[in-house]
Amino acid sequence: MGVVDDAEQPGFITTTLDKLLRWGRSRSMWPVNAGIACCSLEMMTTGAARYDFDRFGIMFRSSPRQADVMIVPGPITKKMAPIVQRVYNQMAEPRWVIAMGSCAISGGTFVDSYNVLPGAETILPVDIYIPGCPPRPEALLYGCLQLKKLISETSTIGSSRKPMYVPPVLPEEWPLELLGEYDALEAGAVWVQPERDSPPVTPLGDAESAPEDEL
């Protein structure tokens, strides 16, 4: 960015749109407030008074639609995996994922278990890994600053939009959830509008019982 040093037209800067977007995105990362397990306590601590996430422009959003970063704070179980995937696919583009703690990195203590996935990367494209069980708030802050660096160095203009992330190895237990026509294009599937559980609509006036002369 360069400031136009012109006395007749003050207050102008020259930059590219790409740089401006990167600057803005890297300074307002909004993680989705999805607490999964133990690490979410440290995530909350980082948001509270002593460590104060807000000074970096990081504010937790409760709705994935308003968020662009997903912090995965805990082990992903087989029952939770489709939901985590769905939350990720509902987030606005472009989006990033932080795997927080050993469980989200590799399964951690529970890697042997019959119900835990070996890390978040099996279903999500992870950008930053923060080790620890759980990581200290300082570690989470450092990880977020690393992500900030990553965002300010990655161009998001002109790259092909990825509406849906398709993991390299599709898990067999659950089908990939398609949320719309656009997702189906990405997953190479045919989008079928699901049947909604809606109450039967009864017409207000019954045609047969109406008097004939009024018809």
């Binding site: 087989k78 029952k79 042997d112 278990s113 119900n115 237990e173």
Partner: peptide, 18 residues
Amino acid sequence: LQPDSSTIHPLRRSFELE
């Protein structure tokens, strides 16, 4: 506790962790 698609009863002795 387990997803409905599960077919195992893990706390049986006959079920061994991989």
